[in-house]
Structure formats: structure tokens, C-alpha cells
């Protein structure tokens, strides 16, 4: 985005803000998916531990799977052309 020095500083600030917003979308989605995957799958593992008495393997498997899924989503965003 080209900034003109003659523009009002508020206009320039808003343009810069829009640029940052545009760039932040994929990063925000990757970070939320990473945390979401760990919490969701860790939570499912924890529930399975309680219901079936698998403790601590349900929680551990859930957390590991959550990290794998979360990082896979992160890699997809980073490697996006």
C-alpha cells in the first residue's frame, strides 16, 4: 500500500491499520486453530480417561494428537503461496 506524505496522519494510520488487518487474518486463524485443537482433543482424551479409566493415556494421546493437528494447520498457513 502506497502512503502519501501529504495525507492526514489519521488517514495514513487507518490505511496502515487496514494493511495490518489484512495480514493478520491467516496468522490469527493458525494460532486459534493450534490452541483449539490442543484444548478440544485434550478435553476429549480427559473425558475418555474418566469414562473408561484409561488415565493418563487418553489425555496424553489427545494432547499429542491436538499438537499434531494444530501444527499441521499452522504449517498449512506458513507454506501457503
Amino acid at each position: 500500500m502506497a502512503f502519501n506524505d501529504d495525507d492526514h496522519f489519521l488517514a495514513r494510520s487507518f490505511e496502515y491499520f487496514q494493511k495490518i488487518v489484512r495480514q493478520s487474518g491467516p496468522a490469527a486463524s493458525a494460532s486459534y486453530t493450534l490452541i483449539g485443537a490442543i484444548i478440544l482433543l485434550g478435553g476429549i482424551g480427559y473425558v475418555l480417561d474418566i469414562v473408561y479409566g484409561w488415565s493418563p493415556f487418553g489425555l496424553l494421546s489427545g494432547l499429542i494428537l491436538g499438537i499434531i493437528v494444530g501444527f499441521y494447520e499452522l504449517i498449512k498457513v506458513i507454506w501457503k503461496p
Partner: peptide, 14 residues
């Protein structure tokens, strides 16, 4: 497939 469900879950919780 898990990633498909994680996305709405992240939206819900956040």
C-alpha cells in the same frame, strides 16, 4: 477431518 471440527470449536470457545 479433525481440523474441520477444530475450527468451529476454536470460534465457539474464544
Amino acid at each position: 477431518i479433525i481440523g474441520m471440527f477444530v475450527k468451529p470449536f476454536a470460534l465457539t470457545m474464544r
